[in-house]
Every structure is written in structure tokens, then in C-alpha cells.
């Protein structure tokens, strides 16, 4: 039962983690850890609860990963003598992208453009958008999975839409 659930979830979970981390290894690690946690702690729970529990675990893992990266970046900046103090989870993203979405669009690489646009979103906007729009979670479920309030989900989602509309302008108005 758990095997079937995880088999149906793992690839999408990987995409969620990959968009957040922009690292194949980190994304695989996060999904593996989430699977282990679900199996260890919640395998006895009703199957119907697994999807939301799994999302919640994965979001916690992503958030922990993000915090570790922020600390690493801060230490790295400190040694580099950079005055940039990293930032917080609400407002900053890991700046691993060098390709601009508009440029990728010009190359007709829509998949890459979307990936870049999503990667550039602040982590909470990004994950809120993916959980709501792609995974189809309700506002309440998204709030529970992310451990934030319903109001925050609505705010992050609308900001994500606005940012994506700006990044993917051409794509947005295409039919």
C-alpha cells in the first residue's frame, strides 16, 4: 500500500524539491528523507491521510534545507567580507540561476523558462504556488502542509501569480 502511494508520488515530490533546491542530489535526498519519515512515523495511519502528511514532511525538509543553506551562505558571505546578510525565508531565494526567464522564452524553451521563473520566486511563494496550482491542494491543505496560516497562503499565492505573470509575460498571454 505504502509502496503504491510512494510510487505515485515520488516523481512529483522530486520536482517540488528540485525546483526549491535546484540540486539533483539535494532533491533526491529530501524526497528520500520524507519517504523514510512517512514510513517510520505514519505508516500505520489511514491511507487517506498520507498525501497531506507526505507534503507536510517534505515541506518541513525543504524548509530545513533552506535554513541550512541560508546559514551556509551567511558564513560564506562573512568570510568573503560581503555585507549581504543572507535574508529570511519570506523574502529571499537561493540565487542559483543565471538564465533570465525572458531569454529562455526567446529560445522557445518553455519548460526551462517556467523552471527558472519558479526558482526565482521566494521559497514560500514558490511552494505555495506549486502545492495549490500543481498539486491541487486546497488553501486549508496548503496551509497545513506548509505550517502557515490560511491568510499567508492566499498572500503568497497571489504574489507568486503576479511574479510569474511578470517573469513569463509572453507565455502568460499566449493561448
Amino acid at each position: 500500500m505504502l509502496n503504491a502511494f510512494l510510487a505515485g508520488t515520488e516523481k512529483r515530490a522530486y520536482r517540488l524539491a528540485y525546483i526549491a533546491t535546484q540540486s539533483n542530489e539535494d532533491a533526491l535526498d529530501l524526497v528520500q528523507e520524507a519517504m523514510m519519515t512517512l514510513a517510520r512515523r505514519y505508516a500505520e495511519r489511514d491511507e487517506g491521510e498520507w498525501p497531506l502528511l507526505f507534503h507536510r514532511i517534505l515541506q518541513n525538509k525543504i524548509r530545513d534545507w533552506y535554513r541550512r543553506q541560508t546559514v551556509k551562505n551567511k558564513i560564506f558571505s562573512w568570510f568573503q567580507g560581503d555585507s549581504d546578510d543572507g535574508g529570511n525565508i519570506e523574502d529571499n531565494t537561493i540565487d542559483t540561476q543565471t538564465v533570465e526567464p525572458e531569454r529562455a522564452l526567446q529560445n522557445e524553451n518553455l519548460g526551462k523558462a517556467i523552471e527558472v521563473a519558479l526558482a526565482k520566486l521566494p521559497i514560500r511563494q514558490q511552494q505555495t504556488f506549486l502545492l495549490r496550482a500543481w498539486e491541487g491542494l486546497s488553501v486549508n491543505e496548503t496551509a497545513e502542509a506548509m505550517g502557515i496560516s490560511i491568510g499567508s497562503v492566499k498572500t503568497h499565492y497571489s504574489r507568486a501569480i503576479a511574479a510569474l505573470r511578470t517573469s513569463l509575460g509572453t507565455f502568460y498571454y499566449e493561448g
Binding site: 510512494l6 539533483n24 533526491l28 528520500q32 519517504m35 514510513a39
Partner: peptide
């Protein structure tokens, strides 16, 4: 390759349930 690694991770998770 990623499919294989995800499957491996899944098998380890399922094994945990069996052991439990």
C-alpha cells in the same frame, strides 16, 4: 537514473514498515 534512485529510496522506506 533518478527513477532508479527514487525506487531504491522507496524500497528502503517500505522495508522500514516491514521491519516495524
Amino acid at each position: 537514473e533518478n527513477s532508479r534512485r527514487l525506487k531504491q529510496a522507496r524500497m528502503q522506506a517500505v522495508e522500514i514498515v516491514g521491519r516495524k
